[in-house]
Design a protein around this nucleic acid. Structure first.
Ligand SMILES: [Zn+2]
Ligand SMILES: [Zn+2]
Ligand SMILES: [Zn+2]
Ligand SMILES: [Zn+2]
Ligand SMILES: [Zn+2]
Ligand SMILES: [Zn+2]
Length: 151
DNA sequence: GAGTTTGAAACT
DNA sequence: CAGTTTCAAACTC
């Protein structure tokens, strides 16, 4: 087993996320889209990351924790260490539970809101997760290959 | 690799 | 809560 060349931009199977953040210092959330995936995953940036002025590192854990606290203050579910909850609908495509979701579904992730991609590309969180869209989605013209939203 | 498109996080 | 801004990833070339 030699080191594999990482030509792909997707995360490695080992958990490396390989972000490329520039303005957020890797201290903002992301599910996978938007902002830093490393920070959202609760891990520090690693070698393969191409981020600039990264603060998501052990040396700056003070900043990391501060950023986490700030986000948690608004979203208690945002960064719980152990995502024991049903992580949502989006991964299971079922919303009957529908309880919890305290403030405003907090970590939200309840469904996509695609307008132009028609849920046919990874811009759509549902498609990225390989699940069909559900009633929780507000997509328009849904064409999710894993299942269209009812309607 | 540079440039465009996209939708969610963050902000107001 | 809704509208706008900001942002990095997905995508295209
Ligand atoms: Zn980052
Ligand atoms: Zn990173
Ligand atoms: Zn980083
Ligand atoms: Zn979608
Ligand atoms: Zn969806
Ligand atoms: Zn959809």
């Amino acid at each position: 087993m030699l080191f594999r060349k990482k030509t792909s931009t997707t995360n490695d199977e080992n958990g490396c996320k390989r972000c490329k953040c520039k303005k957020t210092k890797c201290l903002k959330l992301s599910f996978p889209c938007s902002y830093c995936d490393c920070f959202a995953a609760g891990i520090h940036c690693s070698d393969p990351c191409s981020c600039q002025t990264c603060l998501n590192r052990q040396e700056y854990q003070d900043n990391v924790l501060e950023a986490r606290r700030k986000i948690k203050s608004h979203n208690p579910f945002a960064f719980l260490p152990k995502v024991v909850q049903h992580t949502t609908d989006i991964l299971s495509n079922n919303m009957e539970g529908a309880n919890l979701t305290t403030p405003s579904s907090a970590r939200h992730k309840r469904g996509c809101n695609c307008k132009r991609s028609m849920c046919r590309k990874k811009y759509c969180d549902c498609y990225q997760a390989k699940v069909g869209c559900s009633s929780g989605c507000r997509c328009k013209g849904c064409e999710n290959a894993y299942g269209r939203k009812e309607g």
